[in-house]
């Protein structure tokens, strides 16, 4: 008998999980993009969170593929398809979603253990939200000079951001992440794996427990996310654009116009020539 079990297999399984998560989470985010959010007082209600989809799949299958699939799905379906691409700022969301889902998926060693699933779901969601909150606080800190010096500012920023975090975690987190995950994981366990030609996850086949190295990797990724976000949104003060223009602006602008006109003329002539051939 020839037992075939090789690397190709794992690669293609990962691709399946990636494709599955991408399609489903992408579809879900496409809807959330279209459903309006609304605020009652300070509490924001939004059906923003379909994060349970990648969470469930990350707990049942390869966590990294599910995490990357989810982030890609969101990027492709809701940002690119609807033309709502926000530039570099999207990197933050991409990385935090990936990390949150990945961590939750790695935490669950046995999907039949409901308590573990619950803890992982809320931790994954919490991690994603917390990272978002930290990014937000950094943004303000970065944008406002002498953040510490303004009386009451740090406190109020921490208070509002902290409240938003708790609200999201308790409202979206529990309603839209924890409960659906707890509902779906036991129902899907043992049913969805054979459809993809895999065997269900057990403590023996699960990836080894989270190591310090993995966590350090996550931290590095998170720092990248913060950097990207800051670069994207708070770069306003980096260059004092106006000041430099005040003096020699006219001359430079005239120079640029001349160059553009020249380029345009040359291109037109070249095009005519090319067409004449």
């Amino acid at each position: 008998m020839n037992q075939t079990q090789n690397k190709t297999m794992n690669q293609s399984q990962k691709l399946m999980v990636f494709v599955l998560t991408m399609s489903l989470y992408g579809l879900a985010t496409l809807f959330t993009e279209l459903i309006p959010k609304f605020q009652v007082g300070i509490v924001e209600f939004s059906v923003e969170y379909f994060l349970f989809i990648p969470l469930v799949l990350a707990m049942l299958f390869d966590p990294l593929s599910a995490a990357l699939g989810a982030a890609t799905g969101e990027l492709v379906f809701s940002e690119i398809m609807l033309g709502q691409f926000g530039g570099l700022g999207e990197a933050e969301k991409f990385i935090t979603v990936t990390l949150g889902v990945y961590l939750a998926g790695r935490l669950v060693r046995d999907p039949r253990n409901t308590r573990m699933v619950g803890i992982a779901a809320i931790l994954g969601t919490g991690a994603q939200l917390l990272m978002g909150t930290i990014v937000d606080i950094c943004k303000v800190q970065f944008a406002v000079e002498d953040f510490e010096a303004v009386a009451g500012l740090p406190e109020s920023v921490f208070a509002t951001e902290g409240f938003a975090f708790l609200n999201d975690l308790l409202f979206s987190g529990i309603l839209f992440c924890l409960l659906p995950t707890l509902y779906l994981v036991p129902k899907l366990y043992g049913k969805i794996e054979p459809l993809l030609g895999m065997s269900p996850r057990t403590p023996e086949t699960a990836a080894p427990a989270l190591s310090a190295k993995t966590l350090a990797g996550c931290a590095v990724a998170f720092v990248c996310a913060v950097a990207a976000e800051l670069l994207a949104t708070s770069g306003l003060e980096l260059i004092d654009w106006e000041a430099s223009w005040a003096e020699s602006g006219t001359a430079v602008a005239v120079g640029m116009i001349a160059a553009a006109v020249l380029a345009l003329a040359v291109l037109m002539v070249m095009k005519k020539k090319a067409e004449a051939k």
Binding site: L20, S23, L24, A28, F50, F52, I53, V56, L57, P180, Y183, L184, K187, L188, K191, I192, L195, L196
Partner: peptide, 9 residues
């Protein structure tokens, strides 16, 4: 999403 997940799988 429960049926959808299985069907998409």
């Amino acid at each position: 999403f429960y049926p959808l997940m299985l069907n998409t799988a």
